[in-house]
Design a protein around this nucleic acid. Structure first.
Length: 1118
RNA sequence: GCUGAAGUGGUGGAAUUGGUAGACACGCUGGACUUAAAAUCCAGUGGUCAGUAAUGGCCGUGCGGGUUCAAGUCCCGCCUUCAGUACCA
């Protein structure tokens, strides 16, 4: 009987579905085991052979664990919110829900035909309201929580309010915004409700803030750092710019330390742990404050303000009028060269706003001395634009765009005249905070460097340095982030003219700016220790700044000395003579004593922006009342995504949800209502942003435990029973995205007592990528010697020349290629011999669809000519090699554009799911990147046929009950041992070889005994579930093979009485000798030395030494 | 630059603690069956040299050293490839 994989596989897939064979139960006598794949985003392209790799591995493991007596949970679902469906909706108007639904159908069909043992009754989809109800619910929990550093966990916000009421915020040890002001309990009580809310927002684990975000204009949305690759969007490669927006953020930084600590407790790949560690980027050091030295400033301004005037100025700045505030809110976030200042003195005039770098003054019109002011400002090189209060209040956008225009296209040329600009008071308290990991080198500081964007720069810059500093700032502002990153070597900077005071020596330290200091790391300022840091060293060398040496016996004439260990500090007052560790501690101690600094741990990890300007994502359960966010009570969830007509941002720049007409919250009726009702007092606008892709994937593994529960994420009992994932398989590209956020949420849910464990996955494996094997054909491009291509100059010369392709082996160089083509054309009279010298032929490599190429790299020429992508090749000529056209091969990423994508559907149709499963495992180690070559599948395919044949005699199923022989038992138990070890070590590729060896041996032994074949079926069934189910039932078994116990290995069958010893001479194996295993060393030596072959090797010499490892090897030296 | 992983036949890859390098496959070559092809089966297949042959010698795990009776495996120094990350103070 023939092995008919199509019929067998279809039947058993139906059987499993009908009998719910793999449905997991939530309580059992058996131990639990939870195996999970990272759920897929259902893309329109469907699966290619690379996608199922991890699923096959986890499925084998899940099936193996079932055989081993575990209650296995092995669910699957879809991460079904995402950008592609939305992009498609924008292009076609098709609702993303519909696209998603269709894609899921394709995925499901493709997955089903591979025979996975998923419990589909637990399927989740992140875009289902029943699911995202819980995503919204978790968001509310985060909003209602703060992080208490004393208890080191998240707590309910009410406990914080209690403390505020009782003792203000000075005693609170919380993770919060950096700029919180302190208040007493009385002050707290005196605050308005709105003010209190605003303060609480600075402590909540999710909070609104104006954050600088990665804005992608082409996609109309904000992107996370990990969604940007090389400065452009990961999807679509669109440019990305920095922009300030009011956004929801997640205070993941609160968990930085615990996210690091947790890594110690989980069995994840070291590279993945390392990249999380680097991402979190913990550095231990100190915060050091440097006072700006006021005396040193060469204030040349003629106008001096009195203290009284200064106070008045401060007052003015604090109490802006409504129009002033409105405009200020629009322009205050401008950075760098377009930074604005409010209420600033120019000469003796007080101006409303000024951009110093661009020499632009913005004023409200209607001032009495307007004409006089204009004359003075213009004389000083400033351009003035004025707006009325009404203009600002009615259309602030227009006003801002006029200001932007004025910045870009200044009317007045900068005059050379010296300006009398009062830097409006360098206040005595001005200080520059720096973060350093090397406070022990504090005596080596010879300058400070500020990021060009640092807020103090314009304030401290002296008039003499102003021009240089401004020029530098505008030069760096012009360079994109990308340029700055790419160009690390060029050293640039400018001296501000200002000095700071060294906290210990009191010496003056010049303050520089330089773009090697990043504005968004640490404080945006560094204390430069050129002798200990290469960048500082290079900077100092470049600008000829002193490089004091504070290391004992170290030469720093060539480069900085950044080694810490073993270095002794010198020339450093109280630190001299100390080693790194001691000096570090003492330096911090002294800094703290002086009040000039304190020990601090700094993390690279930033809070995660949680708002996206997209349609196809979870809506926030948030409405705004008087500008303050309000949570919708959990009982009214889910807040369902509204329908919109257009999926693009609105014309006034609001996110797509701004298009919704039914998107207001009726706080009395507790439901979403039409926007028309917004005039009502109890109806409020809803949040227009949606959540990012990682929201839904950060807890889905918990939801699988109880996916249909309407009252909780999952019941306490189920969470308690399943705990967490025992084995999680997925790609390493999620290292600093999904896998970090999911750990964060799990820890938060753990703090809140919702889940029982604080790490969601005990073991994780990254499956490697499967690459495609592209096929190339070589096409001849014909040129006439004057340089024109044939298309361009259609003369007689080339009239008859057709498209020509040349088989790979016919040439090795370009010259040979040209000769081959020319000869062919001449032989076939396609080229006039008189013109042969006028013609140039170049070769172009083109991708050919891999489905047109067979295992021997031979191209199906007719297929190629008729392929839809080669319409221009219908009449092409192919120069063959021995009647064949051979393509050249190259391994590349699988991609549609490279025509190297292999669809599992085709493989399943031709070879069967079992063959696909075996082959994917056979390709190589699971975690390794490896190329796909369809030709290789014939190996596993013929293995399955051989295996099938063991059970048949001709057309008859024939398995005997005869007792097995020693050899047969040995083969079986050898296989049991190896396969079990391999599965436990996730070495699936080697167990496939083991199966092949076993079947080869049993075929040779002509074994058709039940006692051997039945256990072998169970061994193979995790890998090839269909064929084994079929044969299992043919053996008379009524239950699915998945319920069978795993065979037990018995060592007694492997015990050998003799060993074929390799006999080596000086380490080189010369021959083998079969000897009984129970011989002693002496007996072995005797037997070996007596052997004639030994004597032949020795040729009369006496061995110096004989090494005998019983059961292993004999080595004769001499 | 830093971090991590890896370099073994024509190809994918084996070799658990140092102990017969190249398992198992693909591909290739030859043969059987067939009118022919496909399928199937059998044999050979790291390189090189010698021999009609059986067989035997030498060389071989990125390169150069070292430890050892014995090194793909351990140590030192380099080279290359891939992945991640990047002026992190």
């Amino acid at each position: 009987m023939q092995y008919n994989h199509q019929e067998i596989e279809k039947n058993w897939q139906k059987f499993w579905a009908d009998n719910q064979t793999f449905k997991a139960i939530n309580e059992s006598e058996k131990p639990k085991y939870y195996v999970l794949d990272m759920f897929p985003y259902p893309s329109g392209a469907g699966l290619h052979v690379g996608h199922p790799l991890g699923y096959i591995a986890s499925d084998i493991y899940a099936r193996y664990k079932r055989h081993k007596g575990f209650n296995v949970l092995h669910p699957q679902g879809y991460d079904s919110f995402g950008l592609p469906a939305e992009q498609y909706a924008i292009q076609t108007g098709q609702h993303p829900a519909k696209t998603t639904e269709e894609n899921i159908k394709t995925y499901r069909r493709q997955l089903d035909q591979i025979g996975f043992s998923f419990d589909w009754s637990r399927e989740v989809r992140t875009s289902n309201p029943e699911y995202y109800k819980w995503t919204q619910w978790i968001f509310i929990q985060l909003f209602n929580s703060w992080y208490n550093k004393d208890t080191d966990k998240a707590e309910d916000i009410s406990t914080l309010e209690k403390i505020f009421k009782k003792e203000g915020n000075t005693t609170v040890n919380a993770v919060c915004d950096e700029d919180v002001t302190s208040f007493s309990s009385d002050e707290w009580k005196a605050f308005s409700k709105a003010a209190q809310e605003e303060i609480l927002l600075q402590y909540r684990l999710t909070y609104l803030s104006d954050t600088e975000v990665n804005w992608c204009p082409a996609l109309g949305t904000v992107l996370a750092n990990d969604e940007i690759v090389n400065g452009v969007s990961e999807r679509g490669s669109h440019p990305v710019v920095r922009k300030k927006m009011t956004q929801w953020s997640m205070r993941i930084s609160a968990y930085a330390q615990r996210l690091l600590d947790g890594l110690e407790t989980i069995d994840w790949p070291q590279p993945l742990k390392d990249s999380q560690t680097n991402w979190i980027g913990k550095s231990v050091g100190a915060m050091v404050s440097f006072q700006v030295d006021v005396k040193s400033k060469d204030l040349t301004s003629e106008v001096k303000l009195t203290y009284k005037e200064l106070d008045a100025l401060k007052e003015l700045r604090a109490n802006l009028s409504k129009a002033e505030t409105t405009l200020w809110n629009e322009i205050k976030n401008k950075k760098g060269a377009s930074k604005f200042r409010k209420k600033y003195t120019i000469g003796s005039f007080l101006v409303d706003y000024v951009c110093l770098a661009k020499n632009l003054i913005v004023e409200f019109s209607g001032k009495e001395d307007e004409a006089e002011r204009t004359v003075f400002f213009n004389k000083e090189g400033f351009n003035v634009i004025r707006f009325s209060n009404e203009e600002v209040l009615q259309n602030v956008v227009k006003v801002v765009s006029e200001i932007n225009f004025a910045i870009q296209f200044p009317k007045v040329q900068k005059t050379e005249s010296k300006k009398n600009v009062t830097s409006s008071a360098v206040e005595k308290s001005d200080k520059i905070d720096v973060f350093t990991t090397r406070p022990d080198t504090i005596f080596g500081v010879s300058f400070l460097t500020l990021a060009p964007e640092h807020e103090l720069v314009s304030k401290i810059t002296t008039d003499t340095q102003k021009a240089a500093v401004e020029a530098y700032i505008s030069a760096t502002a012009k360079r994109s982030e990308r340029d700055r990153m790419a160009d690390v070597k060029t050293i640039s900077g400018a001296f501000t003219g200002a000095y700071a005071v060294h906290p210990f020596t009191g010496k003056q330290i010049p303050i520089w700016i330089g773009d090697y200091v990043l504005a968004n790391y640490g404080t945006g300022a560094v204390m430069a220790v050129p002798c200990g840091d290469q960048r500082d060293y290079d900077f100092a060398k470049h600008f000829d700044i002193a490089i004091p040496n504070i290391f004992e016996g170290v030469d720093i004439s060539e480069a900085a000395h950044s080694d810490k260990d073993g270095t002794v500090i010198a020339n450093s007052d109280f630190l001299s003579g100390l080693k790194y560790k001691k000096a570090l501690k003492l330096a911090i101690f002294e800094l703290e004593k002086k009040g000039a600094g304190y020990g601090k741990v700094n993390y690279r990890l930033r809070d995660a922006v949680f708002s996206r300007q997209r349609y196809w994502g979870e809506p926030f359960p948030v409405y705004y009342k008087d500008g303050m966010p309000q949570m919708i009570a959990a009982e009214h969830l889910p807040i369902v995504l509204p329908e919109v007509e257009k999926y693009l941002p609105t014309e006034d720049g609001k996110p797509p949800l701004g298009n919704a007409t039914e998107w207001a919250w009726d706080s009395r009726a507790k439901k979403v209502v039409s926007n028309d009702k917004l005039k009502n007092k109890t109806v409020y606008p809803l949040e227009l942003n949606t959540m990012p892709g990682w929201a839904g994937s950060s807890y889905y593994f918990n939801r699988y435990m109880d996916p249909h529960n309407e009252n909780e994420i999952a019941s306490k009992e189920n969470l308690e029973y399943w705990q967490n994932i025992d084995l999680y398989i997925g790609g390493s590209e999620h290292a600093t995205g999904h896998l970090l956020y999911a750990r964060f949420w799990q820890k938060f849910l753990f703090d809140k007592g919702i889940v029982p464990v604080d790490e969601f996955a005990k073991k994780l494996i990254n499956q490697g990528m499967i690459l495609g094997t592209s096929a190339f054909v070589y096409r001849a491009s014909v040129f006439v010697k004057n340089g024109c291509s044939i298309e361009a100059s259609n003369d007689d010369v080339i009239e008859k020349i057709p498209t020509v392709f040349v088989s790979k082996n016919l040439f090795s160089t370009d010259d040979e290629f040209e000769a081959v083509v020319k000869n062919y054309l001449l032989d076939n009279k396609l080229l006039d011999p008189n013109f042969a010298d006028l013609v140039l032929i170049a070769k172009t490599a083109l991708h050919a669809d891999v489905s047109l190429v067979n295992a021997s790299d031979e191209l199906d020429v007719e297929g190629f000519k008729n392929h839809p992508i080669n319409t221009d090749c219908k009449d092409a000529h192919f120069i063959l090699d021995a009647g064949k056209y051979e393509v050249s091969r190259e391994v590349e990423k699988m991609s549609k554009s490279k025509y190297n994508v292999v669809n599992p559907d085709d493989i399943v149709a031709e070879y069967g799911a079992d063959a696909l499963r075996l082959f994917e495992m056979f390709l190589g180690p699971l975690e390794q990147t490896k190329p796909w070559k369809t030709s290789g599948i014939s190996g596993v395919s013929s293995f399955l046929k051989k295996f099938w044949k063991l059970f048949f005699n001709g057309d008859n199923f024939e398995v005997t009950e005869t007792a097995p022989t020693k050899d047969e038992l040995k083969t079986l138990h050898k296989t049991i041992k190896k396969v079990e070890e391999d599965i436990e070590n996730f070495s699936f590729n080697t167990s496939v070889s083991t199966f092949m060896i076993a079947v080869n041996e049993l075929t040779a032994l002509k074994c058709n005994k039940r006692a051997i074949l039945e256990p072998l079926l169970v061994l193979l069934s995790p890998y090839a579930p269909h064929i084994t189910e079929e044969l299992w039932s043919k053996l008379g078994n009524k239950e699915s093979i998945s319920t069978a116990d795993f065979p037990i290995f018995e060592a007694k069958h492997l015990i050998e009485s003799a060993k074929n010893y390799p006999i080596s001479f000086n380490g080189k194996m010369r021959f083998t000798l079969e000897l009984p295993l129970d011989l002693s060393k002496e007996e072995i030596e005797k037997a070996v030395l007596e052997n004639e072959k030994t004597q032949e090797q020795l040729q009369g010499r006496t061995p110096k030494k004989i090494i005998i490892v019983p059961g292993k090897i004999v080595n004769i030296v001499g």
